[in-house]
Computed example of a mutant assay.
Amino acid sequence: MPIKHTYAEHGDACRAANALDIVGDRWSLIIAREVMLSPKRFADLLASVRGITPSVLTERLRALTGSGVIEKVVLPDLGRTRIYRATDWGRGLEPVLESLGRWYTSGPEPQTEGGMTPDGVVLAMRTMAPATSASVAPLALVLYDERVTDSPSFGYAVTSADGRLTVTPGLPASGAPTSVRADATAWSELLFGSTPLASAEATEQVVIAGDRDAVADLIGLFRAG
């Protein structure tokens, strides 16, 4: 295996270049994305980081942990489950991911193919959340990835305040009058594509409990933005 030299070793003091020594390898930013909002087990990451092999994932986790972007935590359960989560410094990569997403969207070929993970689509929502003067009803959003066998579900709270939508990990503490359970890719196609809500409901990729109009209004805000 060839020896990898850092930009610093080549004499480049640019901090952006040195940042690439930490997160510039293939899959590194994607791993950071997947632990940005919710901690993940190794098996979860292996399923959500599409195309990575166990050996490469192990190497990337070791490097990202060593650099301080993520940390490994052993849970106090009977199985001593090991999870990975972003550090405070690692969560500072969210604006980087946002900027990359906006940069790609402004390009000549912004269309993409494939699917979305739950945290991936929520980060996209946070990036593209439109400013709005309308009040958005609180919403409990539960996403899963139907591409993954026995996919875990992840909960988020959608609210609005001061003319801005917010999407945060964890279901609303006091509950919400409306909830959505959806496949992450189907939900992304509703927000950023042209799939009719009725079509997603017909296939049960999106299931709404409560005020359907509130969900339709939320989707409309993203499409209008």
Rank of each mutant, 00 (worst) to 15 (best):
V158Q: 11
D162P: 12
L46M: 01
E98A: 10
A161D: 09
G170Y: 02
A140C: 15
A47L: 07
G175C: 03
D213Y: 02
M116A: 10
A13S: 10
V56E: 10
A157T: 12
A129F: 11
G107P: 00
S194I: 02
A200I: 04
T81H: 07
T203Q: 08
A157L: 11
S106T: 09
V49D: 08
L78H: 07
G51V: 05
G101I: 09
L29Y: 07
L61D: 10
A124D: 11
T6A: 04
I219W: 01
L165G: 01
V49Q: 03
Y104G: 04
P2I: 15
L197K: 04
T117H: 12
R50E: 09
L75F: 02
T195I: 07
V180I: 02
G210M: 01
Q205T: 04
L46Y: 04
P138A: 13
T185P: 10
S38E: 14
G120Q: 11
S38A: 12
P76I: 03
A63C: 13
F154E: 09
D213R: 12
V136Y: 13
A137S: 15
D21A: 11
A137N: 15
D213E: 09
F154Q: 04
R212C: 06
W103M: 06
D213I: 06
L141D: 13
T168M: 00
M125C: 10
S38W: 15
L221A: 08
G66Y: 09
P130D: 11
T65A: 02
E9R: 07
R212M: 05
R147N: 15
G24Q: 09
V136T: 14
A140D: 15
L75G: 00
G24I: 03
V142T: 14
V35Q: 10
T6P: 06
I70V: 01
G193I: 05
P177H: 03
